[in-house]
Each structure stands twice: as C-alpha cells, then as structure tokens.
Design a protein around this nucleic acid. Structure first.
Lengths: 154, 154
DNA sequence: CATGAAAGGTTCACCTTGTCAACTTTTCAG
DNA sequence: CTGAAAAGTTGACAAGGTGAACCTTTCATG
C-alpha cells in the first residue's frame, strides 16, 4: 500500500481529483442516458431495469431491494407492482417469515434483463475508444475504487 | 437474438469489456447517489443542481439547457421555475432575439453550485482509494472515453 | 400463554422529473 | 405582408421518490 497524502477527509482538493470528478460526472451522465434508452427500447424504465437486474442473482425481499437501491421500501412497492402487472416478476411469500415477500424474475423478466445487459456491452460507445490493455487498466482501477468504498452490495 | 452480431467497433463482447461495464454501472450508481445526497444537503434536487452546474460558464437559453441535458424544453421550464422561485437563477430576455430567455445563476445560485462541487471533491470516497499516479491514469482514460464518444457538450 | 414492541409491506398524500400536444410570441423568408 | 419556423410556456398525464399511517407477522418478555 502506498502512503497517501490524502487520508480520510481530504485536506485539499488537488487538481487531478477535481478533473477526475468532473470527467466522472460527464461519464455518469452519458452512461445514465444510454442506460435509460436501452431500457426504454424494451419498454422498461430505468428503475424497473435496475430492479430486474438485481433479481438476476435470485429472488430478493422487497426491503433488501430498497436497501440496495438506497430508497424507501414504499417506492419499491410501486415499481414491483408495474413489473408484476407486465409479467416480469412475481411476488411470493417467504415460508420462513411470512412478513417477507420474495420478488423473483419470471423467464420473460430475466430474458429482458439479460438482453438489456448484452445490448449495453455492444452499444457502449465510450469503451470502444480504448484498447484491450487500457480496458484492463481501467477495470483494475474501477475495481479498486469500488472495493475501497462502500461495497457494491449486489 | 441468439446470433451474436459482430457489428460496429466491437467484434465480440470480450470478458474485460463486460466486467468494465458492470463495474461502471456500480460506480455510476454510487456516484449518482452521492450527487443526489450532496444536492439534497443544500436543499436542491439532482436536476436542479445539474442546471445550476451548467450555468457556471455563463447564462444559457432554455433550449440549450434542454439539449445539453437531453430532455424536452418543457421540462426545463419547471426546473427553472423552482430555481427562480428560490432566488438561485434569473430569467432575462435576450436582446438579440426576444424569443430567447437567458437563464443566469444569481450569486446565491453560483455559490451553492460551487459549494456542491467542492463537497464532491472532498467527499468522493472511491477516489480516495487511488494514489496520485493512478488518478492521473484514470483521468487520461476517462478523457479518452469522453472525447471518443459523443461530445460531453458542457 | 398473553401482550406489546418491532419488522416487512402496503397505502395515501404529496412533490419533482419527464413526456407529449397545443398554444403564444417573436423572428424571418418570400 | 403573410405564413412558416423557432423559443418558451401551459396542461394533462405517468413514473419515481418521500414520509406518515396502517396491517400483518414475528418475537421477546412478563
């Protein structure tokens, strides 16, 4: 581990950090836009696509979905309602704890989510500007950033 | 679509790309969350903060704001309404073309925006996991990605 | 065992973001 | 001068998001 001049609360905002933050903001906006478009192309909203993506690893209680997405449980109710009414997910009561409702993706839902993910891999324009080596470097940096901060949850 | 169309720049969805996309999705979610929180701490919504950030470079017509943010002009009307009612921006008619309304940040608005930006520089936890050299590498990669794709506009 | 607190979801009222269509005002080409 | 096009606004509507009140189930404790 390299000793960093900036530990915990950064004492001063260095030049590089500032620029990286600005670049990230732009990239985040771009990514977000494309994600919404890709979802819309499958008649899903961004929030619905996110929930569906979470369910790729299996059924999940409402509350856990809310925690992972950092929003109120009451919000998830509506999103799951709309997904359910379209046959993308089902709600089943947990046998261990009947208060809990497990949300599971249907085959249709899982397929839509996987399709969307694949389309992101192909359509991701920004990434096309980088060579294989650079992508590897980027991957390592992103990994470091994500494991260093609060865990990605899912 | 079972067939894998090898079109565009990417001939096949390689392993690295897929992982980078997933990592980016997580990072984008994290960034987005923190941005919203930082804005909320100043009693701004994310959208309001974005508009205010755009105005850092000077007054801007409604239409241009809409184009930069990739949304309908009618949407901007409401956001600017709320910013205006709180004294963060003003609407002034353009002398050259009286159809155009130039939105400008007030001192209060500009201060709030700058403060928010600074707070991002400090609070950005993920970035703290990287050393100075790594941050430089990351900056260069992000620059490449953004200039290679559709221009960031702002 | 009874009872009450706590947890998981839902409902309701409310606000913001976002879209689309219709409209007003202003500009500009012919 | 007249009509088309552009900039903004308005209104109706849907989704995302919060917070408070509520119901059901679980569980600890007397």
């Amino acid at each position: 581990m390299d000793t960093q001049p900036a530990q915990g609360a950064t004492p001063q905002p260095d030049e590089i950090t500032r620029e990286v933050v600005d670049l990230m903001a732009n990239l985040v906006a771009l990514f977000h836009r494309e994600y919404e478009e890709a979802a819309a192309a499958r008649s899903l909203t961004g929030a619905q696509a996110k929930v569906l993506a979470l369910l790729r690893r299996g059924p999940m209680p409402m509350r856990q979905i809310a925690q992972t997405l950092s929003c109120e449980p009451s919000n998830i109710t509506g999103i799951v309602d709309r997904l359910e009414s379209r046959g993308f997910v089902t709600r089943e009561a947990d046998r261990q704890d009947r208060r809990v409702k497990l949300v599971a993706a249907t085959d249709t839902g899982a397929a839509a989510s996987e399709e969307l993910r694949e389309s992101l891999n192909f359509a991701r324009e920004p990434l096309a500007s980088l060579g294989p080596d650079e992508r590897t470097v980027l991957r390592d940096l992103l990994r470091r950033m994500l494991t260093g901060a609060s865990g990605p949850g899912a």
